[in-house]
Simulated scan of single mutants.
Amino acid sequence: MKTVRDKSGRLLGQVVLVTGASSGLGEQIAYEAARQQAIVILCARRKEKLITIARKCQQLSGQPAFYYELDLIDPQQVDQMLADIRNKISNIDILVNCAGFGLFRDFLAFDLTVAREMFEVNVLGLMHLTQKVALEMAPFGSGQIVMIASQAGKIATMKSSVYSATKAAVISFSNALRLELKPLGITVMTVNPGPIKTAFFDRADETGNYLNTIDKVAIEPDKLAKKIVRSFKTKRREINTPIAMEVANKAYILFPKIGDFLTGNVFNTK
């Protein structure tokens, strides 16, 4: 089942595992990979959504599509899923770590139980799954791991202290892992998007106002998914979008005091 892109650029026969696949960016990545004829494996907590998405993936790809109801913070569930994939489907060629959530709230009012859950999903669950999949990729000398991080991991803003901390951890983890896995033939790509027009903000923004405020710079998930899937099976290091936010990140590094003023005042829209 191991194949490479054919001449038309399709991911024919490649096995792509997508976490957080029941909505938003993860769902769109699954559809785009299916359009490229990948064998898509979806996992998330909402089984009813996964069933519908898997059917659409199968129609788009003409290939089998699979789904697993999964709570990423449960290591036993993760291990059981991977064993089932290995025994019944094939080895994983591409892992897309897209599961995660955020909550915008002042840190002094933040429930640390939720903070722990956020780290368990966004960081620790991601690490456990990544380690297990990379161990299975290593003997083949190939594979790709895609980390969906965030521009919030580069520039922290008010009310995003915990979420930004989790995404900064993902970015640092990815950068170190990239170096460790390169000799094994496994590539690591980090995706750092700005705000995306998805249901993420249904939980993250309790006021319901933030996405409307930044609508002009918010990213359409289907367009970002296309960019990500085009980078499958390449050695691309990062995707940073939108460009304006990446430029702001560079300026923030060079002029941190000005950056603090702008993020704390001019660009404080939460």
Rank of each mutant, 00 (worst) to 15 (best):
E27A: 10
V40A: 04
N268P: 04
L177Q: 11
V133P: 03
K154S: 06
N97W: 05
L184K: 09
M118K: 12
Q28F: 03
V16F: 02
H128Q: 05
M1Q: 08
E120N: 11
V96M: 09
I219H: 03
D74L: 06
L135N: 05
D93L: 08
L108Y: 09
V229I: 07
K159E: 11
I186T: 01
S161D: 05
V4C: 03
D202I: 14
C43P: 04
L112I: 12
I228A: 00
N97H: 12
Q37P: 00
S61T: 04
E136C: 14
Y163N: 07
E48M: 01
F267V: 07
K2W: 12
Y252M: 13
K223C: 07
L25I: 14
Q63K: 15
V217M: 09
R35E: 13
L184I: 05
V133D: 04
T241G: 01
I258K: 04
L179R: 12
F255P: 01
D93F: 07
S22M: 00
K197V: 11
A248I: 08
L177K: 13
G26N: 05
I29R: 00
T113Q: 15
V121T: 15
Q76A: 15
L184P: 02
R5G: 13
T263I: 04
T187K: 12
K159Y: 09
V96A: 07
K167Y: 11
S90F: 01
K167V: 05
D71P: 03
K182E: 13
R105P: 00
L11C: 04
L17A: 03
T52S: 15
A152K: 10
F173D: 10
L25C: 14
G13W: 14
R45N: 12
F101N: 12
F101A: 10
L181F: 04
I214W: 00
K56S: 03
I171V: 15
K132L: 08
M1E: 08
E48C: 02
Q80D: 08
R237M: 12
G194D: 06
T157R: 13
V188F: 00
A83L: 04
Q63E: 11
T166S: 12
A225L: 09
T213F: 04
L108H: 13
R237F: 14
F232W: 06
Y68S: 02
L129R: 00
N240F: 09
A65C: 15
F107S: 08
P242N: 03
I243F: 12
S231I: 01
G9Y: 00
K88Y: 08
L135K: 09
N87L: 07
I94C: 11
P195E: 00
L135G: 01
M81K: 07
V114W: 03
L42D: 00
K2A: 13
V114A: 04
V16H: 06
V170C: 04
I228H: 01
T190Y: 10
I29W: 01
M118W: 15
K223N: 11
T269I: 02
N249Q: 09
A199V: 12
L12S: 14
